[in-house]
Design a protein around this nucleic acid. Structure first.
Length: 152
DNA sequence: GCCAACGTTGGC
DNA sequence: GCCAACGTTGGC
């Protein structure tokens, strides 16, 4: 099993949206960056655990944990001309983008803030805090996972 | 709202 | 294949 960190703007989808319906999978769609897509398509597997990071908001940080209940499949939003994620170049026969399905695991009792993550020497290699890193899907090692959760 | 950093596009 | 221009991300 592998570990990941996914970024999301909580106004779009937050850990509370998962917690509200803990059995209900949420379609993780709209990833439109090739490197992130490749992680999602080639790395993210059924059963993997994912840290949910809240970006572009007042309280930046890791807010909770979800897990993968369906591995990569064609992101339906790429075919939907009304969607902001629509991609005219993608076809059903040859989709460009993928989605996964996630369900709630837990909400952290205290947000692990970006400040805290940045000030932890053990987190120096985490892609999240590396200069210029803008990936919305990034791998987390087992060691980083343990160390990160120990910060809460 | 600013801006650094990175990604994408398209002319050549 | 280069690279300038533009678009996006995301913390500050």
């Amino acid at each position: 099993m592998n570990y990941w960190l996914f970024k999301t703007e909580p106004s779009e989808c937050s850990i509370d949206d998962f917690a509200r319906n803990p059995q209900q999978p949420i379609v993780w769609e709209g990833v439109r960056n090739y490197q992130a897509r490749n992680y999602l398509r080639d790395g993210v597997a059924l059963g993997d655990q994912v840290l949910i990071y809240h970006s572009s908001c007042k309280h930046l940080g890791v807010a909770g944990i979800v897990k993968v209940v369906r591995a990569a499949y064609a992101d339906p939003s790429q075919f939907d001309s009304r969607s902001v994620y629509y991609d005219a170049k993608a076809t059903v026969a040859q989709p460009t983008w993928v989605a996964v399905d996630l369900v709630y695991v837990s909400k952290l009792s205290h947000l692990i803030t970006l400040d805290k993550i940045k000030s932890s020497a053990k987190m120096a290699e985490l892609p999240l805090v590396q200069k210029g890193s803008r990936l919305s899907v990034m791998p987390v090692t087992a060691q980083q996972w343990c160390d990160l959760l120990a910060l809460q």
